[in-house]
């Protein structure tokens, strides 16, 4: 069972990623989510239960604007640790779209990226294989100050007024 660092706790992931079997609600790709959302509207049915979506680095978060209220999970995929597009996606989701649900970073991330990710609004982390989530959490405490306003609430560094 996949372990997720969620809100500073380690917990078993209740979600299934695209293509995974088993229990739990399924995380959709952006294309699947948008197709479903279109169908819901066409049916005139009420919006379904809370949805989860997984974004790749080129996915445009603005497309989620009409669906934000329905979303309970957004997973942003980091294919490499050097690809910083996910940080902008996260800031836009939190600040411009007002997304309040779980925002999870997944893929090539380690403790060394945790603080900046958290500052951009991520509050859940699915680490690269081999990373120790507890050590990562401890590492987060090594950052006490910061220079810029940002959207995250998981960490509250001291800033100059």
């Amino acid at each position: 069972m996949r372990q997720i660092l969620w809100q500073r706790e380690l917990r078993a992931d209740p979600w299934r990623y695209p293509g995974e079997d088993g229990e739990g609600p399924l995380v959709q790709t952006l294309a699947e989510l948008l197709a479903d959302a279109g169908a819901v509207v066409a049916d005139g049915a009420a919006a379904g239960s809370a949805a989860g979506v997984r974004l790749g680095p080129t996915d445009d978060v603005a497309l989620l604007a009409p669906l934000v209220a329905r979303l309970a999970l957004v997973v942003i995929e980091f294919e490499t640790s050097g690809d910083g597009r996910g940080y902008s996606q996260a800031q836009l989701l939190r600040q411009r779209l007002g997304y309040q649900g779980e925002l999870r970073a997944a893929g090539a991330i380690r403790r060394d990226h945790l603080f900046l990710l958290a500052r951009c609004g991520f509050d859940a982390f699915d680490f690269a294989p081999g990373e120790d989530a507890r050590a990562a959490l401890a590492h987060l405490e090594s950052y006490r100050v910061a220079y810029q306003p940002a959207s995250g609430r998981l960490v509250q560094p001291r800033m100059r007024p």
């Binding site: 690809d83 910083g84 940080y87 800031q91 900046l116 910061a146 220079y147 810029q148 940002a150």
Partner: peptide
Amino acid sequence: RQWSTLHPEFNYL
């Protein structure tokens, strides 16, 4: 200098 130092969003350009 301060703003750009460990900017949360722009450290992996």
